[in-house]
Nucleic acid binder design. Structure first.
Lengths: 195, 195
DNA sequence: ACGTTTATTGTCATATTTGATAATTTACAC
DNA sequence: GTGTAAATTATCAAATATGACAATAAACGT
């Protein structure tokens, strides 16, 4: 045949670097020049593998959504395997910095801002939020079977909010205390559900 | 003397327009061209009154911080004037869309992302968050005098998180249900405090 | 060694963004 | 109406960002 293709690796490298740029500078600030220097690849190569700027953004959104789906899917599957303490274990994992992915979180924030001028992405992210909220509610349902669904969903929205917030503020630095407080608040919230 | 100065008005117009641009496109996407067309003023005029791009960003940050300080100050002062139900009234106001300022919220999100590459702004915003958290904790303290300070601060962090999160997600549209759930969660959280 | 396919590099034109400053106009006081 | 200070407009150069495509180099099978 011919020279072996490195498309898969390059694509991955480029998207990782693009994530970094978007996390640092926002979607509109993630220029192809920055991407090039961040990835160490020439701008022409980026174009060769990923197409133009818009193609790149679309690829980033898809990557973000699938990665998030995989991560939360694994989390929820693991929790389902537990006999008890699913809810509190979930809090432990959500608020543990060792499980946190700062780049991913910053990308989420950047995409949310980008949604303000791109309604198609806004729709995708709204569903993304709903899915996570539903996932949390499902975990809570297993631990608190007798609680009405509406209450479970309310608490799920609250836990999601506290969790999203503390992660998106992580970039400000020195958030240890605030993170601990947020975590204890999430626990408080869950304990309002009746066993 | 001479032609009357319109510096104050122009400055205000420019900053309002810049807020709009930052809210829609992020800090790095808020170009002077967009600002010019948004404000209806020529780019040269923007420069005349506000200086260069960096001056503009500094002015925006200061404006954001003082506006936020004024808004929350008024809120806390009003709550202080109430005899009881300060805590729940606070929730009513925080989660009422009629009190919400979508532009202001989006600016906050944009500045948080911008903080990732500008540590000086990150420090300002960290203090900004702490101040609001403390303000909420103070309100809670009046309503729940016997509760230990640490508990009050924990709940304050939680309420802040749920509130910040729902406001920053507002841009995704169609967030009525999620907002209602978030609000009920905040109430739940507060009710974990002992009277 | 040769053809083929892909990776990689190089180059160019164009559009956008920004900074800086000159030139002009306007409104007021006298 | 004239001087004056400020507003407004008009340009220019430089830097940056993007798109498109040509040219070269490298790795593989035969």
């Amino acid at each position: 045949m011919a020279r072996p293709s490195v498309k898969a690796e390059r694509t991955e490298e480029i998207l990782v670097a693009f994530e970094h740029c978007v996390a640092l500078y926002g979607v509109e600030g993630a220029t192809l020049e920055r991407l090039a220097s961040q990835s160490g690849l020439q701008r022409s190569l980026v174009r060769h593998y990923m197409g133009n700027r818009n193609d790149l953004i679309i690829a980033l959104v898809n990557r973000f959504l699938t990665q998030s789906s995989v991560t939360f899917g694994e989390l929820f599957n693991y929790l389902e395997s537990l006999n008890d303490d699913q809810a509190l274990t979930m809090i432990e994992m959500l608020f543990d910095t060792s499980y946190m992915n700062t780049t991913q979180t910053a990308v989420a924030s950047a995409l949310i801002i980008y949604s303000g001028s791109h309604l198609d992405i806004a729709n995708l992210l709204r569903i993304w939020v709903q899915d996570i909220e539903n996932g949390i509610a499902d975990v809570l349902k297993k631990a608190y079977e007798n609680e009405p669904n509406d209450n479970l969903q309310d608490v799920a929205a609250g836990v999601l909010g506290v969790y999203f917030n503390v992660d998106s503020l992580e970039v400000l630095g020195d958030m240890g205390k605030f993170r601990a407080r947020s975590k204890r608040s999430a626990v408080r919230l869950i304990k309002t559900l009746s066993q």
